[in-house]
Design a protein around this nucleic acid. Sequence first.
DNA 1: CGCCATTTAGTTGTGCACAACTTAGTTGTG
DNA 2: CACAACTAAGTTGTGCACAACTAAATGGCG
Lengths: 165, 165
Amino acid sequence: MADKRYPGGMTLPAADWLRLDQQICFSLNAASRAFGGVYRVILKDLGLTYPQYLVMLVLWEHGELPVKKLGEHLRLDSGTLSPLLKRLEAAGLVRRERSARDERSVQVRLTEEGTALRERAVEVPRRIATATGFDLAELQDLRSRLERLTTALDGADLTETAGRD
Amino acid sequence: MADKRYPGGMTLPAADWLRLDQQICFSLNAASRAFGGVYRVILKDLGLTYPQYLVMLVLWEHGELPVKKLGEHLRLDSGTLSPLLKRLEAAGLVRRERSARDERSVQVRLTEEGTALRERAVEVPRRIATATGFDLAELQDLRSRLERLTTALDGADLTETAGRD
DNA sequence: CGCCATTTAGTTGTGCACAACTTAGTTGTG
DNA sequence: CACAACTAAGTTGTGCACAACTAAATGGCG
C-alpha cells in the first residue's frame, strides 16, 4: 500500500501521490478557469459568455445544426444546451425551430445578427493566444495532449470500485 | 487583418485562428470536464464532489486554515467557498469557527471524521492517474505547462480593447 | 478618541455542468 | 395496425464559479 507501480515504471509513496494528484487535477482546473476569466473579459464586448462563444464557433463553422449534433461537437447534453440556446435566442443570435422531417429534433440556425457577429469575433483568438504567452507550436502540442487525455478519461474503466473485488 | 504575426514567428489566416481557438479552448474545457466526470465516479464512495475533494486535499496537507488562505491555495473566493464549506460542515468533515484573535476570520479545521477520510482517499490518485493513461513524467510535464499557462493568463494585459488602437 | 479605509466572510443573482426525469415523436416487430 | 423500445429535447434539482454587494471587525491617522 505504500508504493504503487505505474506505467512509466516509477513508484511514489501514496502520500506523495495525494500531493501530486492535487497538483495535476488542480492545475487543469485552474488553467480552465483562468482561461474562462480571460475569455470573460474579451467576450464582454460581444455580449457572450465563454460557453455561448463555443456554441457560436460551432455554428459559424458548420452552419445549421440540430441540438443533438451541437452537443456532440461540444460534449454537452440538452440539460446544458437548452437553456443556453434559449438565452442565445433571446439575444437574437440564433433561432430554434422544430425540424419538419423529424419533429423530435430542433434545428439551431444563426440569425443575420448571429452571422454578422463573426466579423467582430475574428480578433478574439489572436488576443487569447497572445494572453497565453505560448507560441503556435506549443498551443498545438498542448491541444493534442489534452485531447489524448480526454479520450483516455472518457474511455477509462472505473469498475475497480472501492471495497469490492 | 488577414494574417497575424505571432511569437513563434508563424502566421495563420484569421479564419483558421477561429478554428484553432475553438480547438484549444475547447480541449482544455473538455479535459477539465472529463476529469470532473472521472472524479465524480471515484469520489462517490467518499461522498465528495471534486471541488470538495480539492478543499480536503488542502486541509489534509496544511491542517487548519482560515477561509482566506484556503481560497488562495485553490484560487477561489468566499462566494464559492462559503456554501461549499457549509456543505462539508453539514457532512461532518470540517468545522468552522471564528478566530478569537481576529473575529473577521473563520478557521476551517478537520473533524476526526474528516481526518479519517484521508485513509480512504489515498487510493484515489492512483486510480485517477491510471485512468489518464499518462505516465508520471507526462503528468508532471503537463502540470508544469498548465501552471505556466495559468500564470500567463492571470498576468495577461487585456487592455487592448475591441475598437481602439 | 473618533472616523474612515481596508479586510474577511457571507449573501444574492446569473450562468454553466450534469444526473435524473418527463414529454413527445419515431421506429421496429408481431 | 398496435404497442413496446428507442430517441430528442426539455425540465428539475444540486452544486460550482464568479461578480457585485453587505455586514462586521480591524487598523491607521488626525
